[in-house]
Nucleic acid binder design. Structure first.
Length: 568
RNA sequence: GCCCCUAUAGCUCAGUGGAUAGAGCAAUGGUCUCCGAAACCAUUUGCGGAGGUUCGAUUCCUCCUAGGGGUACCA
């Protein structure tokens, strides 16, 4: 339990005994006062008015009078219908900071997920297509969730469910057979494959028979045709080489690189399983699971030519994951445009009578929007992630040259800052929001950004370097400034925010908390001197506070996949 | 048509059913002989509309409007 949770529980207990309510009920109502009110917790008495048949202010006055100071609680005062409780700032600081410094890199982590496995499907780019800024979202959100669940003690299996199968390969093979150029494929594989893909979609408008060719090629691929298979392998290898370069830049890793093709030899058994349950029906020559009673279009398992689809392979993958890992949860970090697909998939699992269908969760995120509409691979309307990262790193290097030309290892720092800016930009808001692609915002390093957090961390690091060794027993009771209490509170709440982020599959809960902390610390820094010359004990206490801030920023940034820098 | 998501300041977004709705960007003006000015301080503007539930709604429910997405052989 975090020190902050313990403090909250103590306040709730005090209020419970004063009001006669159960602690759990008090805890549920407990809130905090607005900025103008000098108190740490607030207890609203409005719900009691009915049962007690008294006005809320009168109830608040009675409860406040019964609260005795002692322990963490210093005083209680009624104001309107609220009981405002003040806690001892020194004791609060002592507990919170001591815990943060004692636990260090483990602060915020727990073992509550021990013996539970969580499978997370993330990134999952389509082979033979460019790694765009759209894939970045799944990649960084998924990676952050992997880190968050690991921090809570879960066993996590991160799966890159590569889009390495499907009709798109029929299209690519068709296009390559028709217009392919070996030299271009060797020299600039992904961009060239994208061009072929775009050309295919442009040509198919006037030559619809190309679609039939594509379907035939995919069918041949599924049936193990050597020619099709060889081209597929080549496209896949070339793509993976490019993807790995991007993953290296981002520092992203996976436990499994199993794509859709991996499940190819399990598809017949999967379809058979659905048929055995009597769920599969022939409709318009295709094999489907009728979902009409649930208000959804049918889930297609086989096309008219018996080739499989996305849903078939996802179904096989779900069974495979359950058999392999007996997951506690099976998460899919995939864009919100695929919500219906997952609703269908989970419904089919439910109809198959799998109790673990309820443990499968789609974790959707908003789409990247351009000023002129949605991104479209088919029209070649994409922004390459490598280009974005390169620009960000270049800009970071410019700023370093200007602000800190003497800095050692400027190249590494520029990389960390530039990439940190792009990564954090994708994690700072609630993931469901669509993102308008905007170079200015992406390349902004001021305000609520990754570099701002890195800067605050580096600033704290700089102070601690100058200070030398820390005292092991600083007088925490000296930390009574309101700006200090604000920082302490945020340090103390950090572990709870990690849990909330896991509960809601929402990395932004960590991001927003780090921004709040950095803001509070920078405000504090600008109002009070830490490295005091004339008050050694207070200096020690403030340094301990600074060290705890640095620790939280470091741990939080690490969860988000952003490098915490000592200097920048 | 039907289904899902979103709507808070000029822009991008936070916001636990509670007391005066907060940040950043942009703009303007301040703060470095002082621990890192990628920082801090100050100034201005707002909960899409209408009902409902509630002691109390930006928050929950319904309807409407707007934007985005999806809607059988792509993923």
């Amino acid at each position: 339990m975090s020190a902050f949770s313990e403090i909250r529980a103590e306040v709730a207990t005090a209020l419970a005994s004063a009001s006669g309510l159960p602690v759990s009920e008090v805890d549920g109502l407990l809130t905090w006062p607005p900025p103008g009110v000098a108190a740490d917790f607030a207890f609203p008495c409005f719900t009691l008015a009915k049962t007690l048949r008294k006005a809320p202010p009168a109830i608040a006055t009675e409860i406040a009078a019964k609260i005795t100071s002692g322990g963490i609680v210093v005083s209680a005062a009624a104001l309107g219908g609220y009981v405002n409780v003040r806690t001892d700032p020194g004791k609060q600081s002592a507990r919170v900071i001591a815990q943060a410094l004692r636990e260090g890199d483990r602060y915020g982590m727990s073992t509550e997920g021990a013996a539970k496995t969580i499978v997370i499907d993330y990134s999952s780019p389509n082979i033979a297509k460019p790694f765009s800024i759209a894939h970045l979202r799944s990649t960084v959100i998924g990676r952050a969730l992997v880190n968050v669940y690991r921090a809570l003690g879960y066993t996590v299996v991160g799966v890159n469910h590569l889009g390495d199968w499907g009709t798109q390969f029929g299209k690519l093979i068709t296009a390559f057979k028709a217009w392919g150029d070996e030299k271009q494929l060797e020299e600039r594989p992904i961009r060239y494959l994208l061009e072929l893909y775009v050309k295919f979609h442009a040509e198919v408008k006037s030559k619809p028979e190309l679609d039939d060719d594509a379907r035939r090629w995919f069918k041949r691929l599924e049936d193990g045709d050597a020619d099709a298979r060889a081209l597929w392998q080549r496209f896949r290898d070339l793509s993976l080489t490019e993807f790995n370069r991007v993953y290296d830049m981002l520092g992203v890793t996976f436990d499994r690189f199993s794509g859709e093709a991996f499940y190819n030899d399990r598809l017949d058994a999967t379809v058979a399983r659905v048929e055995a349950k009597g769920l599969a029906t022939r409709s318009q020559d295709a094999l489907v699971v009728d979902l009409e009673p649930y208000g959804m279009p049918p889930c297609l398992l086989r096309k008219a030519d018996d080739a499989t689809l996305y849903a078939t392979r996802d179904l096989a993958a779900a069974y495979y994951r359950h058999e392999q890992f007996q997951f506690h949860k099976n998460l899919y970090v995939v864009g919100s445009d695929q919500t219906l697909h997952f609703r269908q998939l989970f419904k089919v699992l439910e109809l198959l009578g799998e109790p673990w269908a309820a443990s499968c969760v789609h974790v959707p995120f908003g789409l990247i929007q351009f000023k002129d509409g949605k991104m479209s691979t088919r029209e070649g309307k994409v922004v390459f992630l490598e280009e974005v990262l390169a620009k960000a790193v270049e800009l970071a290097a410019d700023i370093i040259r200007e602000k800190n030309p003497e800095l050692a290892s400027r190249g590494d720092v520029a990389k960390a800052v530039g990439i940190g800016a792009v990564v954090f930009n994708d994690l700072k808001n609630r993931r469901i929001k669509d993102v308008l692609f905007d170079w200015n915002e992406l390349l902004n390093f001021d305000g609520k950004t990754g570099p701002y957090l890195q800067y605050t961390h580096a600033r704290a690091a700089s102070i601690l370097r100058k200070a030398g060794a820390l005292s092991s027993t600083p007088p925490y009771e000296r930390l009574v400034e309101p700006e200090e209490s604000a920082v302490v509170k945020l340090v103390g709440q950090f572990p709870d925010r990690i849990r909330a982020a896991a509960d809601e599959y929402e990395p932004s809960m960590v991001s927003q908390h780090l921004l709040d902390l950095a803001e509070a610390f920078n405000t504090y820094y600008n109002h009070h001197r830490i490295l005091l010359d004339d008050d050694a004990p207070l200096r020690e206490a403030r340094l301990a506070l600074t060290a705890s801030v640095k620790q939280v920023l470091k741990n939080g940034l690490s969860l988000l996949g952003v490098v915490a820098l000592e200097e920048m």
